[in-house]
Design a protein around this nucleic acid. Structure first.
Lengths: 120, 120
DNA sequence: CTGTATCCTAGCGGATACTG
DNA sequence: CAGTATCCGCTAGGATACAG
């Protein structure tokens, strides 16, 4: 239980890198999707990501990439004709956990939807 | 790879319970903390939570509890003199994954902080 | 191709005061 | 004890246009 819950929880704890911070970062709307796309171990260009993810504007894609890069999950390699993004080792080590969460969500989606419906 | 990434990602996918949705819900500021506190398998009262978590206002605590209850992770039991909250089986099944994320965050906090600092 | 600049909306997060 | 009512600031998310 230790990494999650100090004896008394103070607000200043959130200054560093707790589970909460990671979840907030990865919990941003498009983070998981971009992480998932980069998971095939080859670099992806900006426009490739822009075209692959429908409904995501360039502005948001830029910010999402910047945030995840700042967290050390992606790296950014500008080349003469394109910019390539790929997972870092850190990002790669995080992915199994996110995938596990995705599978949990998949398994329990019916239960969650039922819970939500019964609260109307 | 399947639960995370449909061949072409459309916006309407987010209507249901994907990993993204779960992460957004659990990624809200106090969700992990409250989940962690309820992890000891005994019910907790509203004011107990309010006192345990420093810096969390009653309004936000109320909303956090309502959201997680709507997701089916908590249950709410009003008694004559207090209201008790406890984890549902669904919530209990999610916790190991969140704890794993917490441990990952703990292990990699130095790397993440270093990545963030180098971007000043 | 890979962004940045502007402008806008909705909702999270919070302070404070009030209620059954 | 367990909330609700109000009011507010900040920022995630987005549309659109422009730039190097």
């Amino acid at each position: 239980m230790s990494p999650l819950l100090p004896p008394v929880v103070t607000e200043t704890d959130r200054a560093s890198c707790t589970a909460t911070d990671i979840l907030r970062s990865v919990g941003e709307k498009w983070s998981v999707l971009v992480l998932a796309i980069l998971n095939d171990d080859r670099p992806h260009g900006f426009n490739e990501l822009d075209r692959t993810i429908e409904g995501l504007s360039r502005r948001i894609l830029t910010r999402t990439l910047r945030n995840l890069e700042a967290d050390g999950l992606f790296s950014r390699h500008p080349t003469p004709d394109r910019v390539e993004y790929s997972l870092t080792d850190l990002g790669r080590s995080l992915l199994p956990l996110v995938i596990a969460l995705g599978e949990w969500a998949d398994r329990n989606a019916p239960a969650i939807e039922a819970a939500r419906r019964s609260r109307l």
